[in-house]
């Protein structure tokens, strides 16, 4: 008479090991999202990171052969290299983008110079910049949540103001929902008492 009872290692696990792997990835993704989107790494981030780490450990314990294959297998060797190279390449592309963005190279192609100063305005503002008796001016531009595109367009004009006035006119943009009081920002060289 043969023994019909399956051995422990042949029994199908109540929770398949790859569920743990999915949980680990989900936890790490949530933690990363919290890191990127929140000002501080909140309890949600720590919780997700903990769950992700525990799920990863659980997967290694539940399927040690799979874990070993992932680390030492052919897929890991080539795939791991490929993944690292891709990640490095993408980071390099992001760095190039951030560098170019920082250079602030812009041009107004419109025939009527819609987003730049007219010759007359340019002369008047250059005069303000050259006069040492005039105080410096700070322009404040307020934009609502849906006006980011408008802000991009106006940036060209405001930068033109700042450049033509040789830095005497400065500007900054703020969200119209920004709760910080306006009196904290120095306007036209005057400060609140």
């Amino acid at each position: 008479m043969t023994d019909q009872t399956p051995k422990m290692d042949e029994q199908e696990a109540f929770i398949p090991p790859y569920y743990m792997l999915i949980l680990a990835v989900a936890g790490l993704v949530v933690a990363l999202a919290v890191l990127v989107t929140q000002p501080t790494f909140t309890v949600v981030g720590w919780g997700a990171l903990g769950i992700g780490a525990l799920a990863l450990v659980a997967w290694v314990l539940m399927a040690p052969d799979q874990a070993k294959a992932v680390i030492t297998g052919r897929t890991a060797r080539f795939g791991g290299t490929s993944l690292v190279v891709t990640a490095v390449f993408i980071v390099a592309l992001i760095a190039i983008y951030v560098f170019i963005r920082g250079q602030n190279w812009r041009a107004d192609l419109t025939e009527r110079d819609t987003f730049s100063l007219t010759t007359e305005s340019r002369q008047a503002i250059a005069g303000i910049g050259a006069d040492p008796n005039l105080p410096s001016v700070k322009l404040l531009a307020f934009y609502g949540a849906s006006q980011a595109g408008r802000r991009d367009q106006d940036t060209l004009l405001f930068d033109d103001y700042a450049q033509t006035s040789a830095g005497k006119i400065r500007w900054c943009s703020r969200s119209s929902s920004d709760p910080s009081p306006i009196s904290y920002i120095p306007l036209s060289g005057t400060r609140p008492r």
């Binding site: 170019i100 190279w105 812009r106 107004d108 192609l109 419109t110 819609t114 987003f115 367009q153």
Partner: peptide
């Protein structure tokens, strides 16, 4: 695209 290139503003970024 929408606010810049589509309106004749060329930005390097």
């Amino acid at each position: 695209f929408g606010a810049t290139l589509a309106n004749g503003i060329i930005r390097a970024e």
